[in-house]
Amino acid sequence: MSTYFLCLILFCVGLYCLLRKRNLIKIIIGIAIVEYAVNLFFILVGYRMHGRAPILHREQEVLNMVDPLVQALVLTAIVIGLATTALLIAIAIRIYDKYGTFDITKINKLKG
């Protein structure tokens, strides 16, 4: 219970950064923190107490494994997160080339 709540606090730190900050790089950092928190929440839900990793061994009966399904979902989500972060950074670099700033409140005032 307290573990879930700490994970949600991490989510809220990222959300605060996303809503409050005006720098584009800071906004990308906020998105990254939110993404980490969501991935962590999936894994916390699937953890089993005193469980073992879902990998079988030769001549050894492994009982009490943790949930492999959420691990498979998060495995794809991590790589997608990297690709979308790279796309966001490319857009931010282009905005910097055009307007000369990362500040989102100044972007609409300048004309390219």
């Binding site: 990297l82 690709a83 790279a86 950074i89 490319a90 670099i93």
Partner: peptide, 9 residues
């Protein structure tokens, strides 16, 4: 794909 992204950036 990731190498291509890095080279482009």
């Amino acid at each position: 794909g990731l190498f291509l992204i890095f080279v482009t950036l």
